[in-house]
Design a protein around this nucleic acid. Structure first.
Lengths: 116, 116
DNA sequence: GATTTTGTTTGCCATATGGTGAACCTTTGT
DNA sequence: ACAAAGGTTCACCATATGGCAAACAAAATC
């Protein structure tokens, strides 16, 4: 498997697959065993387990085996980190956009003064 | 290249690479030409252009060529979509966690009544 | 104790990813 | 006209990804 350098790399990579996003979506509602999670998807268990491992290694879920069933649940921290990164980027973009709007407005005022 | 089914697939995939996230981070501050964007990274231009194309095809940036230089800028919509998905998931998780806390609290009240 | 259920491991495969160097094309500067 | 700057395309390579089928384990059920 790929050597994902940072947690964000791994998290975004994990989220880039629709099957894995669907699993996360399902798990936000309640923890669930592997079989139930795999049921909606038209792939074999081995392939599905790979997805689960990607999710677990990315820190987006935790799993625990009791008896013969493995129960999975969302680990919200990693999800929040990804969200934070995005919101930070949007904030930076917004700040610049606002400054730009200010500048344009200032220029328009000056134009009006020069008109008068 | 991979056939990314949905915009979210493409966006998260694009964000899973540190080079590409760094480019986004840089571009939130202001638009920039390819050469300037590529400068901090220790890879060849061809490799860097591949990253840019991934970003552009994911809808996270737009690029426009004027003369011999290509200028890139963030397209905030796609970033916001990814953020929304994450925030939605966190909200669902939170809702369940709150219900759970309520339930536990209710049970504790009942226990106290039975004690009295 | 035999059978089902629920995972797990192992090989295997086709395709995608992320990098390289070399050649090439426009546009801009001298 | 020529050279340099800024991208772009091409052929190529190693590794990762996402899937499969088959064999295997361990727990729960009959």
């Amino acid at each position: 498997m790929e050597n994902h350098r940072t947690p964000l790399d791994a998290a975004f990579h994990a989220l880039s697959d629709p099957t894995r996003r669907a699993v996360i979506s399902r798990l936000t509602k309640s923890p669930a065993p592997v079989k139930e999670l795999a049921e909606p998807f038209d792939i074999g268990l081995p392939a599905f387990l790979k997805h689960l491992r990607v999710l677990e290694e990315s820190g987006l879920i935790t799993t625990e085996k009791t008896g013969r069933t493995r129960t999975c649940q969302v680990k919200i921290g990693r999800l929040a980190e990804a969200e934070s990164w995005l919101s930070e980027q949007r904030a930076l973009w917004q700040a610049r956009t606002d400054r730009l709007a200010d500048y344009v407005e200032t220029q328009m005022s000056r134009d009006n003064e020069n008109d008068g």
